[in-house]
Design a protein around this nucleic acid. Structure first.
Lengths: 215, 215
DNA sequence: CGAATTGCCGACTCTTGAGTCGAGTGGCTA
DNA sequence: TAGCCACTCGACTCAAGAGTCGGCAATTCG
C-alpha cells in the first residue's frame, strides 16, 4: 500500500496535502460504514499508515468526523451557481448538477447521510449553520423562480427538502466505473428535479441520456 | 416507563404484539443512530425492559437488524397500488404517496438509510431480494407510463433511483407533530416526483398544500 | 397444591476499538 | 558532530457494549 495514497508532493504544503487525503479517505469510510461503523484503524490502513500516526494529524475521531462535515459543506457551497443573469430555475438546475457531480466525483468530502448526533452540540450547530448556507441559497433560487412564475407555488423549504433527497441519495447507489458517467448522472438528476418544480408552460428542461434523452 | 410501551393486550398473540412493538422500537433506534450507534440497552430501555429480557425475543443484534429490514421491506411492498385500471403514472403517484405516509407514520419499520453491510451476506441477499420486489414494481409502473406516453423516456432504473431518493430522504427531516401532516407530505412528495417524470402535455398532477396548492 | 413454563433481571465475561506512551528513525540546521 | 523536529509505530490502557448465566417471580396447567 502506497503511503498516503501517493498524494504527497513537495515541501511545506505537504502537510496540507496529507490532510486533504486524510479527509477524503475518512469521508469515504464514514460514508460507507457510518460514524460508529468506521474504525480509525481502517482509515489508517486505507492511507497506509498506523493508528498512532493518524493521531498526529487528528485530534480525535469525533473531530475528524466534524472536519469531514465542514469540508463537505464547503464543497457543497462551492457548487452554488452565482450567475445572476440566469433565472431561478436554471440557476437551481446548474447548481444541482454540479453539486451532484462533486458528490460522486473523485475527491468528495461529502458525509451527509449520517448520524450527526455523534457530534458535540457546538460542532453540530456549526455544521448546521454551514449547511444552511447551501440550503438557503437553494431556497432563494426557488423563491426567485416562483416569483418569476417558472416554479410552482408551495413551501420553498419543503421543495428544497425534496430536491436534496433525490440529490443526496445518489451516494447510496452510484458506483464509479459503471455504465453511467458523473456528468450524465448530474445532469439527469438536475433535470428530473427541475421538471418536478417547473410551472406548466416552461419549456423543456435539459436532462441527459439517462433521463429525457430526446426532447 | 410503561412496559412494552403499552402495546400488550390479551392472550396468546401477545407475543406477536410484543415482537411488533420491539421491532418498531428497534427500527426507530436504528433509523436514528445507525446500526453501530444503537446499543441494545437503549432499545430495551425504550421498551421498559432490560437487556437480558430483550434476548428472550431476539437472537442477537444483527438478527434484530435483519428482521427490521425484512419488516420494512414488507411494509413497503404493502403500499404498492395494484389498481390496474389506472395508468402507470397515477399508480406510481399513489404508491409513492402511501409509501411515504407509511414511512413517517406511527408504526414504521423502515430502516432504509443504513449500513446494510452489517448484515451477513445471506441476510443481505435476502433483504435486497425483498426490496427488489418493491423497486421492480416501481420500475414496471415507470415502463408502463413510458409506453403510455405519460412518462418521459429514459432509463427506468435511473428514474426510480431518483424517485426513491426524494422519498426515502423524508425520514431525515420529517418531524411528527410539526406543521406538516403525514398526508400533506406524502401527497406533496408524490406530486413532485411525478411531475418530474411526466411528459409534456400531461395535465396537472395532484400535490398538496405544501407544494402546488393551487392548480 | 405443586411443578413446569414463561417473563424477567443483576451481575457477570469478553471483544472491539478509541486513545496514549515511549521509543525509534531520518532529515535538516548549526 | 550535535541537536532538533517531524514523522512513525509496537504495545499498551481503558471504556463501552454484545452476549451469557443463574436465579427469582408469576402465571398456567395437571
Amino acid at each position: 500500500m502506497a503511503r498516503w495514497s501517493n498524494a504527497v508532493a513537495s515541501a511545506t504544503e505537504l502537510k496540507k496535502l496529507r490532510e486533504d487525503a486524510l479527509y477524503r479517505e475518512a469521508a469515504k469510510a464514514f460514508r460507507k460504514n457510518g460514524y460508529h461503523g468506521t474504525a480509525l484503524e481502517d482509515i489508517a490502513e486505507g492511507l497506509g499508515i498506523s493508528k498512532p500516526t493518524l493521531y498526529h494529524y487528528v485530534k480525535n475521531k469525533r473531530d475528524l468526523f466534524y472536519q469531514c462535515h465542514l469540508a463537505g459543506a464547503e464543497q457543497a457551497i462551492s457548487t452554488i451557481c452565482h450567475d445572476t443573469a440566469l433565472n431561478g430555475l436554471e440557476r437551481l438546475r446548474r447548481t444541482i448538477s454540479s453539486y451532484v457531480q462533486s458528490m460522486i466525483g473523485e475527491n468528495s468530502y461529502s458525509v451527509i447521510i449520517l448520524e450527526e448526533k455523534s457530534l458535540t452540540p457546538v460542532q453540530l450547530t456549526r455544521v448546521i449553520h454551514e449547511r444552511d448556507k447551501f440550503e438557503s441559497a437553494l431556497i432563494e433560487m426557488v423563491l426567485k423562480g416562483q416569483a418569476e412564475g417558472l416554479i410552482l407555488p408551495g413551501e420553498a423549504r419543503f421543495v428544497v427538502f425534496n430536491v436534496l433527497g433525490a440529490v443526496n441519495w445518489v451516494t447510496k447507489w452510484y458506483r464509479p466505473g459503471g455504465q453511467w458517467t458523473v456528468e450524465e448522472v448530474g445532469e439527469g438528476i438536475a433535470g428530473f428535479v427541475c421538471r418536478g418544480l417547473a410551472a406548466p408552460g416552461v419549456g423543456p428542461i435539459q436532462g441527459s441520456r439517462l433521463f429525457t434523452p430526446t426532447l
